[in-house]
């Protein structure tokens, strides 16, 4: 017997872990991975809501979250490669050339 609170609590925990990684890590590979973890947690929350109200809409929203994650990841990884080619580092803090010197 799984009540809807359990997957919702798991989604909160996973989202917060992704947020923690996003805030604490400097390597852009791990930043992108943390964003994927957060999107995945959002998808889990949609599935839990679909279970709670017995409707297929939760899974439909999950498909759209998947779409968004794919499009975001492709662009994010391309930007990562460009940054690496330009600055020869994966440090997100190194990309500060746009600031007012």
């Amino acid at each position: 017997m799984i009540s809807w609170q359990m997957p919702a609590g798991l989604a909160i925990a996973l989202f917060l872990m992704g947020l923690l990684g996003l805030l604490a890590r400097r390597s852009l590979v791990f930043v992108l991975m943390s964003i994927e973890i957060m999107l995945n947690a959002a998808g889990l929350l949609f599935i839990a809501a679909g279970m709670r109200w017995h409707t297929a809409d939760g899974q439909i929203m999950f498909i759209f979250v998947l779409n968004l994650a794919g499009a975001e990841l492709a662009l994010g990884l391309i930007f990562l490669l460009r940054l690496r080619a330009r600055l020869t580092t994966l440090d997100g803090d190194a990309a500060n050339l746009l600031r007012d010197a």
């Binding site: 799984i2 994927e36 889990l44 599935i47 279970m51 939760g58 899974q59 999950f62 498909i63 998947l66």
Partner: peptide, 19 residues
């Protein structure tokens, strides 16, 4: 596996294939 236990087999398959 969690998606499967929540009664969403299609989402479980998509999770394995896409993610």
């Amino acid at each position: 596996v969690i998606f499967f236990t929540l009664g969403a087999p299609f989402a479980a398959a998509l999770e394995v294939m896409v993610y």
